[in-house]
Amino acid sequence: MVANPTLVFPERSELSNRDVSEKLLAVENVSLEYRTRERIVRATHDVSFDVYGGDRFVLLGPSGCGKSTLLKAVGGFIEPVSGSISLDGQAVRGPGADRIVVFQEFDQLPPWKTVLQNVAFPLRVAKKLGRAEANERALHYLEKVGLTSFANAYPHTLSGGMKQRVAIARALAMQPRVLLMDEPFAALDALTRRKMQEELLRLWEEVKFTLLFVTHSIEEALVVGNRILLLSPHPGRVRAELNSHQYSHDSFGRNDFQRSVARIHQLLFEERETAR
């Protein structure tokens, strides 16, 4: 099997001009490690990919392939042991307001602050906006996620899905260069998860932000992403890259969608087992 193969269907040249922009994020030959009590574990090995402005780029792989660790490295929380990560041509050397993370956990909102305060407070600290301007921008993005009427509510009164919508509004209000999402819908029930996926795509249509999204669900990757990087089981290596902009929730029952799901599963698991 050829190392780091690229599977592309359809060709990138077939994408609309709206989906093709200047290279924004460059990850080059990145290897990541973390320490346990017993040993040092290699999470990813020699991973490379580029994210372009307006991309919905998905890191897809099984548990333990290092995709979340890779997202944290892009966020500046982990330093690669080799390789480089750059944003707008500048090396990533730590966290910054140009990269905002939405995590899987629902309890990422300070419980003593209202919904409005949760969204506005980071704007006042990081963007140095005044109270009125921060509240105005916060309300704008709360409207985008359909939570204007809950602006004065506290997090403990919200459902899990609503808390995630507040976290997304807070992240988008910061107007980051790249929005990082680490399996943000994994803990939701199936119906709420689908609704959140639809809302995320609707927001992308309105705002056209750049998204780096982590998931272990093949179906979610095909629907949420317009480009997908497949990572092999531990340690994560690039198995393939593909385009998926042609799919939506309406594609679930189509034969081509199911063929893509089966092909990705084969690339992620079966070929590795055959090679043993």
Rank of each mutant, 00 (worst) to 15 (best):
S82H: 11
G83R: 05
W204S: 08
N255E: 15
L203D: 05
I218P: 11
R263F: 15
E199I: 02
L129S: 09
L172S: 04
H216N: 05
Q246M: 12
E199Y: 04
V261L: 05
V224A: 03
Q197G: 12
Y154A: 06
G146W: 14
N243M: 09
K163S: 10
A138W: 06
E11Q: 09
V145N: 03
L180H: 07
G236Q: 03
R177A: 14
G66F: 03
S68V: 04
D88S: 14
M174I: 14
L25A: 00
V223P: 00
F257S: 11
A187Y: 02
S251W: 04
H234R: 09
L180G: 07
H265Q: 10
V8D: 01
V8C: 08
R170G: 12
H265M: 03
N135V: 00
A153L: 11
S260T: 13
A91D: 08
G66E: 01
Q117P: 06
R56F: 13
F213T: 00
V223C: 06
H249R: 10
C65V: 01
L201S: 06
L230P: 00
H45Q: 12
R227L: 07
S149W: 12
E22T: 11
T148N: 09
V2S: 13
S21V: 03
G89E: 02
L268W: 04
V8S: 10
S82V: 08
Q197W: 05
R259I: 14
G96F: 05
R227I: 06
T274Y: 13
S82M: 12
L179S: 03
L229A: 10
G94F: 10
F121L: 09
H140Q: 11
L267V: 14
E79L: 14
P176Q: 06
R194Q: 11
P184Y: 02
T6H: 14
K195I: 11
S217E: 01
R272K: 15
E105T: 08
L231F: 06
H245G: 12
V238M: 07
L203R: 05
S159F: 12
T192W: 01
R227N: 03
E241V: 10
R239M: 15
D189S: 00
S48H: 01
M162V: 09
T192P: 09
S82T: 08
H45A: 08
A262G: 09
Y141L: 05
E241F: 09
E136Q: 13
T36E: 06
W112N: 15
S31V: 08
L15W: 06
A240Q: 11
M1D: 07
G54D: 02
G54Y: 03
A167V: 09
D88M: 14
L109K: 02
L268C: 07
V47N: 00
H245N: 12
A134C: 12
L179G: 04
P111V: 03
E199K: 01
R18Y: 11
H156F: 15
E33C: 10
F185W: 02
Q108C: 14
K144H: 13
G61C: 04
E79S: 15
T274G: 13
E270N: 13
E133K: 12
D46H: 02
I100H: 02
R93T: 15
D189C: 03
L71W: 01
D256A: 14
R42F: 11
F77V: 11
Q90C: 01
Q266H: 15
